[in-house]
Computed example of a mutant assay.
Amino acid sequence: MSIAQQNADKIAVVDALYRFAAGVDLHDESLLASSLAEHAVSDFRPAAAKAGFDYPVIEGREAIVAALSTSLKSLDTSHSVSNPRVTLHGDKAHLDVLVEAQHVPRNDASRHYLMKNRYSVELMREGNVWVISRTTVDNIWRDGDEAVLSVI
């Protein structure tokens, strides 16, 4: 594989997580779904445990989109993605990245819950696009009112 193709693939891998984050923040279910493989697995348990709540492993694109759309519907969120490190393995890839996630209740902008999370993401190529097959999220630090997440 040429260096140009490797670089293009690395950008496309990171773009899958950008689509995921933007889909969540914009409450755009189609955009969110475009980032996920049909049988994707989403594991927020490590981060959730540090925030003091249980969150189940979610399996399948439709289930992940439904769970995130439902649990975050009363919050405004902003996810900032940084420090992506991509490892390519043919039509599979691994992405380690930091994500800062701000959560603000729509009915009370004076409260917030800010998390800096480490995402470990497995991806696969589907045609001309990369999609997420598994995400595991762990928390590095958090700040604010944990009760903001209780609406989840």
Rank of each mutant, 00 (worst) to 15 (best):
D138T: 14
L95S: 00
V57R: 04
L26Y: 15
A37H: 13
L95D: 01
V13I: 15
D96V: 12
D9I: 08
A22M: 03
R111A: 10
Q102K: 11
A48W: 10
L98C: 10
A40G: 00
T135R: 03
H112G: 00
G52Y: 09
S133I: 00
A109V: 08
D91W: 03
I58Q: 10
V129R: 15
V24A: 09
L114V: 02
V148P: 04
V57D: 02
H94A: 07
S120N: 05
V86F: 05
D76S: 15
S42M: 12
A67G: 03
D108R: 13
I140P: 10
A40S: 09
Q6N: 14
D143P: 02
H94P: 00
G90C: 08
G23T: 01
T70L: 06
E38F: 09
R111C: 10
K92E: 12
H103R: 09
R61F: 06
I152K: 05
T136G: 03
F44Y: 09
I3A: 12
S133Y: 01
S80I: 12
L123Y: 02
S74C: 11
S30Q: 15
D25Y: 12
H94Q: 13
Q102D: 08
I152F: 09
K50T: 04
R111Q: 12
L123I: 08
N117E: 08
P56S: 13
L17A: 08
F20K: 00
G23I: 05
L17I: 15
L32E: 00
V104I: 12
N117P: 07
I132E: 04
A33V: 01
S69N: 14
K73P: 06
A47Y: 02
M124V: 10
N117L: 11
K92Q: 08
S82W: 05
T70Q: 15
P46E: 04
D138L: 06
F20T: 00
A4F: 13
N7A: 15
I64D: 05
V57F: 10
L32S: 05
R85S: 07
E59Q: 09
Y119Q: 07
E29R: 14
K10I: 05
E29N: 11
S74D: 13
N107S: 11
L17N: 02
H94R: 11
D76P: 00
S110Q: 09
V129A: 15
R134L: 01
V129C: 10
L149N: 00
Q102I: 06
K50Y: 07
R85D: 05
L88I: 12
V13L: 14
H112F: 13
E38K: 15
A101G: 07
G127P: 03
S78W: 14
N7P: 06
N107R: 08
L32R: 04
T87C: 08
R142V: 08
G144T: 03
T87G: 03
S74Y: 08
I64N: 01
A93V: 10
N107G: 07
N139F: 02
A16E: 00
V104W: 06
T70N: 11
A33R: 00
N7Q: 14
L68Q: 05
D43W: 07
I3H: 12
Q5N: 13
G144W: 03
L32F: 03
V14H: 02
T70G: 15
E29A: 15
S82D: 10
